[in-house]
């Protein structure tokens, strides 16, 4: 019954083309840490389109295919980029967990930041944008000095900078 309701709500859920993420610049751990909320149905669709994986992935369920996390990492690596001083930072996937309503996942990943004197990061976030041209991705950035910024990424402006 719950499974049926879940399928039904997935089906009827209004198309909200929005992801949200918090990005923390953690100088003591020398890393930029990201937690990003993405709707599962869109995520699965876009990963299949991009990687050519044809099997149903069942992301975020008990039936998830073994390649689930690595496919997700491959996708995020090429759609969520950070550069510091013009140098691209390397992406590393940490893990994921389901959102409370099971319609989305929180993806956790980080970018090691060797030079902690960095004062400006440039972010590109075009997650899901090849799927919907009204896709909006929002980010709350928190600097080491707790300075915050709030950024909106859209198809025509998928890159933004954060100075702290």
């Amino acid at each position: 019954m719950i499974f049926f309701l879940q399928i039904l709500s997935l089906w009827l859920a209004h198309d909200i083309h929005l992801t949200k993420a918090q990005v923390d610049v953690n100088t003591s751990e020398q890393s930029v840490q990201v937690s990003m909320h993405i709707f599962l149905d869109d995520l699965e669709k876009v990963i299949q389109e991009e990687t050519g994986f044809t099997e149903k992935m069942h992301l975020g369920t008990e039936k998830e295919v073994p390649e689930g996390d690595s496919l997700l990492a491959v996708y995020l690596r090429s759609h969520f980029l950070i550069t510091a001083n013009e140098e691209p930072l390397s992406f590393s996937f940490v893990g994921k967990e389901n959102s409370q309503d099971l319609l989305a996942v929180w993806c956790y990943f980080e970018f090691p930041l060797s030079d902690i004197s960095t004062k400006k990061l440039t972010l590109t976030n075009n997650v899901l944008m090849e799927l919907y041209n009204d896709q909006q991705n929002i980010i709350t950035l928190v600097g080491p000095n707790k300075k915050r910024d709030y950024l909106l990424f859209q198809v025509d402006e998928a890159t933004a900078s954060f100075s702290y």
């Binding site: 198309d15 083309h17 009204d134 909006q136 929002i138 709350t140 300075k147 709030y150 950024l151 909106l152």
Partner: peptide, 23 residues
């Protein structure tokens, strides 16, 4: 300053949500 940035983001989201041609 931070609060103003947050306010602007949600203002923009509201504005574009109403004018979103896809929805």
């Amino acid at each position: 300053n931070d609060s103003t940035k947050m306010f602007n983001l949600y203002l923009k989201l509201g504005f574009e949500h109403l004018l979103d041609l896809a929805a």
